[in-house]
Design a protein around this nucleic acid. Structure first.
Length: 274
DNA sequence: CAACCGACCTGTTCGC
DNA sequence: TGCGAACAGGTCGGTT
């Protein structure tokens, strides 16, 4: 579910409500949601007592900086959700981990599909070392991207979703960025001109920033919601994702969907020629 | 190295 | 209406 804009939105919202809060207790209802430490009871023993100093994001990972130089990292994968609620509010039946806070509220991680994971570590690199640069990092230049692409010979769509290249794009925003750049999802990465790579660089940033400005994409199933229950508003701005058979906003041609490595890719056959 | 597939899981939507 | 198949925003490991 959540890609970079959704995780960024969550990080910003949680930053406001959680900085300064102390975690007083942890209940793990689904042990496999915890990857580090390897025993979830050790996790439940070690988390309490820490105060939350900051909430950040790297790629699709949420990072809670705790005092005592510990980090709590959370990845929501497909169906994970985080909410902050008063203890009296009934628990979602899919709640996997519950963190009790010192103000009586609870940070709840719920996840129907049980794909989401969290870790308590001394050094975030233990978990994040394989990630590529953040696409919004100002240090990442169009030329950097061009060189990264030239060093591979994969098709653009799967490559944009490869977190080792860039950290944060998933199925929705990879499709949207390629449409914005006017590049075909099957285009081989080592055939781009420097100008095309620059267009892609600009497109990725523009799409991600626009989505963050609208607080992410909530699709009709409403699986992604802000911590206060409000939906993100970017769905109505999607050009291609989930719009098979509908007109391209730029040229009116019908949006096409193809299967690519087991996933759907959406594009405009006129604006994104092969 | 690149591409594909099944696993991991459950819930919802689709097609007959 | 009912029911199984297909599909879903992600990632990993194994195979071709």
């Amino acid at each position: 579910m959540p890609e970079l804009p959704e995780v960024e939105t969550l990080a910003r919202a949680l930053r406001n409500s959680l900085i300064g809060r102390q975690i007083v207790r942890a209940d793990v209802h689904w042990a496999r949601a915890v990857i580090t430490p390897s025993s979830s009871s050790a996790f439940a023993d070690q988390v309490p007592g820490h105060r939350i100093r900051d909430v950040r994001r790297r790629g699709k990972w949420l990072m809670f900086a705790l005092d005592g130089s510990k980090w709590l990292l959370i990845h929501l994968r497909m169906s994970g959700r985080l909410v902050v609620e008063e203890a009296e509010v009934p628990e979602d039946p899919h709640t996997r981990v519950l963190l009790h806070l010192d103000d009586g509220q609870q940070l709840r991680f719920s996840d129907p599909r049980k794909f989401g994971r969290m870790a308590l570590v001394d050094d975030p690199e233990e978990i994040l070392s394989g990630l590529g640069p953040d696409p919004l990092d100002p240090a990442l230049t169009p030329r950097d991207l061009w060189e990264m692409l030239r060093g591979k010979r994969a098709r653009l769509k799967p490559l944009l979703m490869d977190q080792r290249l860039l950290a944060g794009l998933g199925n929705i925003y990879a499709d949207e960025a390629l449409w914005e750049a006017g590049l075909h999802p099957l285009r081989r990465s080592d055939t781009l001109s420097e100008e095309e790579a620059e267009r892609l660089h600009r497109a990725v940033r523009r799409v991600l920033e626009a989505a963050i400005a609208r607080q992410g994409t909530t699709l009709p199933d409403r699986r992604y919601l802000l911590p206060d229950g409000r939906p993100g508003e970017f769905a109505s701005h999607l050009a291609v994702y989930g719009r098979e058979g509908k007109p391209c906003p730029r040229c009116g041609a019908e949006i096409v969907r193809v299967r690519l490595g087991g996933r759907s890719a959406h594009f405009c056959p006129r604006c994104q020629p092969e």
